[in-house]
Amino acid sequence: MRLTSLTALAALAGGSAFAQEVNVYSYRQPELIEPIFDVFTEETGIAVNVAFLNAGMVERLQAEGERSPADLVFTVDIARLMEIVEAGVIQPVDSDILTADIPAAFRDPENRWFAVTSRARVVYAAKDRVADEDITTYEDLADPKWKGRICTRPGTHEYNVALAGAYLLHHGEEATRTWLEGLKANLAKKPQGNDRAQVKSIWAGECDISLGNTYYMGQMLADPEQKDWAESVRLLFPVFENGGTHVNISGVAMTKAAPNRDNAVKLMEFLASPEGQQLYAELNNEYPISPETPPSDLVASWGSFTPDTLELKDLAAARPPALRLIEEVDFDG
């Protein structure tokens, strides 16, 4: 069963034809999680009902309180996940399976949230205009040699705020401000659109490099209208000086209300299992958080990298000061 509105999902609180179900509020795009939920339903007989939100998840859960029909929340970016946790609308989940399958670095010490995938924020580079050695660090993005050659989605988007937050943790406030100013000076056009739109701009000759999450390459290659964009670029995995490649997560948490708690735990455990992790790897071109599950052949073909070692909780805490700096330099202006 699939629901696409909050009104429809809220109606489930009054009863449903499904004897076994679990209700989800999700910031994740439908195409990224519905195929995995379909497999879970086929194997368990538990229906997954999903309401997809663009914003306002915390406010919705706070307003619904104990009456909320939602069992689980799914989101991208550790900062957004921590926002939900800190709002007091979720509950911890003690599961030996989750503890065994998810490495400690990818779950909350108090079992309030659990990562299910990871992704790197990398550089998409024009194959015919940029060499591999031209850009090796995030610091390079502020080099004047890239003036008028960089495209990116808005700096205030969560993906870029997280990257700026990581830069802040590595280098401090003044260096981050200088870096943001340098990056802004190198932009070919006003920040707009999503990560795939930036690759289209490279393909069209509007810029030479862009910032983007790794899994978008897989999505573009699978889309006949976007395949040419993807084939015009290569992925480069920059690192922070004295650090690694910036990595963020998608994650899940259980709501405080959770009317279908047992089924919700089963879904969480399925997503962390070898089968669930392999599905994520093959269907979404994301990196599994399980060290036992390899990336898909396509993802592996993009090359290996060394993940940055910043702790996710620190990355989440860096979001407010990073966003403040982005706004102070008027990055999107």
Rank of each mutant, 00 (worst) to 15 (best):
G165Y: 06
Q29C: 02
V89Q: 09
D195K: 00
T137W: 02
F331C: 00
P144Y: 13
T75M: 15
L81I: 11
I249W: 12
R129S: 03
P291I: 05
V122E: 14
K127L: 14
N213Y: 05
L235I: 15
D195Q: 05
Q62P: 02
E42H: 02
A51F: 05
G165I: 03
L141G: 02
P288Q: 10
D132V: 03
P238Y: 12
F305D: 10
Y167Q: 14
I135M: 12
P69W: 00
M82F: 10
F52T: 08
N242L: 01
S95L: 13
W229I: 00
L32K: 07
N54F: 07
V48S: 05
I249F: 11
I135T: 13
L323M: 12
A126S: 08
A104R: 03
Y138S: 01
V130W: 01
D71M: 10
Q62H: 02
F305P: 06
F52V: 07
A142D: 09
R153V: 06
P30F: 01
L32T: 08
T178C: 08
K266S: 10
D128G: 07
I102V: 13
P321Y: 04
V233R: 06
N284H: 04
E133H: 09
K256T: 05
K266N: 10
S95G: 13
L163G: 00
E225C: 00
V76A: 05
E158C: 06
K147V: 07
Y27T: 10
S118K: 14
A188D: 00
P154I: 02
E133V: 04
S26M: 11
I202E: 13
D195A: 06
A47T: 03
I102F: 00
F240I: 09
G56P: 03
L141D: 03
P144N: 10
G333K: 08
T178W: 12
E110A: 09
I33Q: 04
Q278W: 04
N242T: 03
Q192M: 14
A13G: 15
A87N: 07
A164S: 12
D77W: 04
T75Y: 14
G244I: 06
A100C: 00
T152M: 10
L187N: 10
P35E: 01
P320H: 15
N213K: 02
E42S: 12
K266R: 15
G165V: 07
T7N: 12
S16R: 06
D94Q: 14
C207S: 08
E275W: 02
D332F: 00
T4G: 01
V122S: 12
M1H: 08
P35Y: 01
L183V: 14
L180K: 04
V93R: 03
Q277W: 08
A222D: 07
S68H: 13
E311V: 11
P320N: 11
D140P: 06
Q29M: 04
D208Y: 07
G212E: 13
L283K: 01
M254N: 11
D195V: 01
A162C: 09
L9R: 06
N260F: 05
K189F: 02
K127R: 15
V73L: 13
F106I: 04
A164V: 12
L6N: 14
S304G: 13
P320Y: 12
G243F: 08
N194W: 08
V93C: 10
R324I: 11
E66W: 00
E86F: 01
D140I: 07
G182F: 00
G14V: 06
Y138Q: 03
A230R: 15
T7Y: 13
A55C: 00
P321D: 11
L187M: 09
L141R: 05
G88A: 06
